[in-house]
Design a protein around this nucleic acid. Structure first.
Length: 531
DNA sequence: ACAGCCATCTCGATTCGAAT
DNA sequence: ATTCGAATCGAGATGGCTGT
């Protein structure tokens, strides 16, 4: 009995310790302890204006980053008459509120330690628009910054609107940043900075670190659960944080690239795409109305619209309702054309591959890019090669077609568009250059005009020099054919000159081989010939 | 105040599917 | 074959936001 009682006591004890630990870690007491801690360890700002100071400070920063490898980074520079002076200040802040301000414009020799610190990719440098800062540091001092992380990525990941630093500070820290532009745009190159300048500069870097931790914690808790995170060591906390953001490291922020917060636009774009990509026939493609000659021979099947036309003109009568049959009142011309009978059979409005009745679209078996180069007699009456497919089969079939395209490209020495992208780009470049020169020459700088002229001359085999306006007008009217881009189909058809039917058969065979259609219309065949 | 970046709008040209 | 319309593309203009 007493043993059981002791065990119970121990369990109670442990539970209460655990609960109090959670409370202390989470509830107001913790905040209170934090403020006490901050009071005992006030934020320190260190101005660095010499190499030796720099070495010392960088070592300190490295020590402070041993466990939590993150630094808030910000830069200040002077802007005059639209010109940007080299970066004057580099601020680096650590998690505990320590901030160092490097007066880069006054340090004769930037310590190698600073180069190494910035280059060290395992230490995150966080900020807003930090890609820009990194570029400037590189341009001005050859300071390569690796491992930078734009806080807007974090904000966006958590479904928040990614605004500027002050917006993020307001939203996530409840802090209003000093936006006084007199300080923002003050002379950062002064040897002796004013207290306001110092606190302003340090504030940006510190706030960046704080925002990082806030958002990072939010995301970790969302991912792993609040409870689990409570018992993590600093090491685990950092390992998980690192894993979380590693994809955004060294990436500049573009709000469109991964817009999870911009929900307003997303559905709209999807709808447009859906409409485009998944467009299917709105009504049955074949109406299957029989057209009879006066002697009752079936001439063909026709559409509702066409039968309506015959009836309205008084050229035919309905002789049967189910199935609907129309008999002509006159002797039609060219009856011999129906000998093969393909057009006289009713066709089902189903996918010829899988038999599905839903989401039907038309498949043109011999692609237009080839057919359009066929001789006239082969271009007519192509409905034999228009088949119905459901959405899925249509997409699958289009993909399979690519193999034959590739084969033809090789066989006929007719490179495909994609492979000649450079030529396509050239073509567009020339067109753009002509337009730009004709319409906007007045507002273009001299140098650009020369560039554009050269583009045109080089690509159209015109003698180098300035092209007159009249000439541009001519060029504008002239339809410059994008030979290389449109040549594949043409070349292939030329290769099959006078044997175009073989190419036609090749595509039909390809369709049958790749799709194994089980519901082809009666009399449809690979060898079909128009009479 | 001024510059850079980016999203968005607009316009014409082009492409492609659908209808005739 | 031809026409029509919707979607797409590229480039320039614009405006908002963010930075100093």
């Amino acid at each position: 009995m007493s043993m059981n009682g002791n065990i119970k006591k121990i369990i109670y004890c442990l539970t209460s310790i655990t609960i109090s630990y959670i409370i202390i870690k989470n509830i107001k007491i913790r905040k209170y302890l934090e403020t006490v801690y901050k009071y005992l360890h006030p934020d320190v700002t260190k101005i660095v204006c010499s190499e030796s100071e720099g070495k010392y400070v960088v070592n300190l920063l490295n020590r402070k980053c041993k466990k939590i490898k993150v630094l808030g980074l910000d830069c200040e520079w002077v802007q005059e008459k639209g010109h940007r002076n080299p970066v004057a200040l580099l601020q680096l802040a650590t998690t505990d509120g320590y901030c160092s301000i490097f007066q880069l414009c006054h340090i004769r020799n930037i310590p190698t330690e600073l180069f190494e610190l910035l280059k060290n990719e395992s230490i995150f440098k966080v900020g807003v628009g930090i890609h820009n800062d990194a570029t400037n540091l590189m341009l001005d001092y050859g300071l390569k910054c690796e491992g930078f992380l734009d806080l807007r990525h974090l904000a966006q990941q958590g479904g928040n609107t990614p605004s500027g630093l002050s917006g993020l500070a307001r939203a996530h820290l409840g802090v209003e940043l000093d936006k006084n532009w007199r300080i923002r745009c003050s002379n950062w190159e002064l040897e002796k900075l004013s207290p306001d300048q110092i606190s302003y500069a340090a504030q940006d870097a510190r706030v960046a670190v704080d925002i990082f931790h806030k958002l990072n914690k939010q995301e970790l808790e969302r991912k792993f659960g609040r409870f689990k995170c409570l018992f993590w060591s600093d090491q685990t906390y950092w390992d998980e944080s690192k894993r979380l953001w590693t994809t955004y490291i060294n990436k500049s922020f573009k709000s469109k690239s991964s817009s999870s917060s911009n929900l307003k636009n997303k559905p709209k774009q999807l709808n447009l795409k859906q409409k485009r990509e998944y467009h299917t026939l709105g009504r049955p493609y074949y109406d299957n109305i029989y057209l009879l000659a006066p002697d009752n021979q079936v001439l063909s099947t026709i559409s509702e619209a066409k039968s309506e036309w015959y009836l309205q003109k008084g050229l035919a009568d309905i002789v049967c309702e189910e199935p609907k049959k129309l008999k002509l009142r006159f002797e039609p011309a060219g009856r011999e054309g129906i000998a093969d009978g393909y057009y006289t059979h009713a066709k089902k409005n189903i996918c010829v591959v899988c038999g599905s009745e839903k989401s039907i679209r038309r498949k043109i078996v011999v692609p237009q890019e080839y057919r359009k180069h066929f001789p006239v007699h082969l271009k007519e009456h192509n409905s034999h090669d228009v088949l119905l497919l459901c959405m899925n089969c249509h997409m699958r079939s289009n993909m399979k077609d690519q193999c034959l395209r590739n084969r033809l490209a090789e066989m006929c020495n007719a490179p495909l568009k994609e492979k000649d992208e450079a030529d396509c780009q050239n073509y567009h470049k020339v067109k753009k250059a002509i337009k730009a020169l004709y319409f906007h020459a007045d507002s273009l700088p001299e140098k650009r005009i020369h560039e554009l002229n050269k583009v045109i001359c080089d690509n159209l085999d015109i003698e180098d020099g300035i092209i007159e306006k009249e000439m541009l007008e001519e060029l504008l009217k002239m339809k410059i054919v994008n030979e290389k881009c449109s040549s594949h189909g043409k070349k292939v058809v030329e290769h099959f000159f006078s044997k175009e039917e073989e190419l036609e058969k090749l595509w039909r065979q390809n369709f049958v081989d790749t799709m194994s259609p089980e519901h082809l219309p009666e009399l449809w065949s690979i060898d079909y010939k128009r009479s």
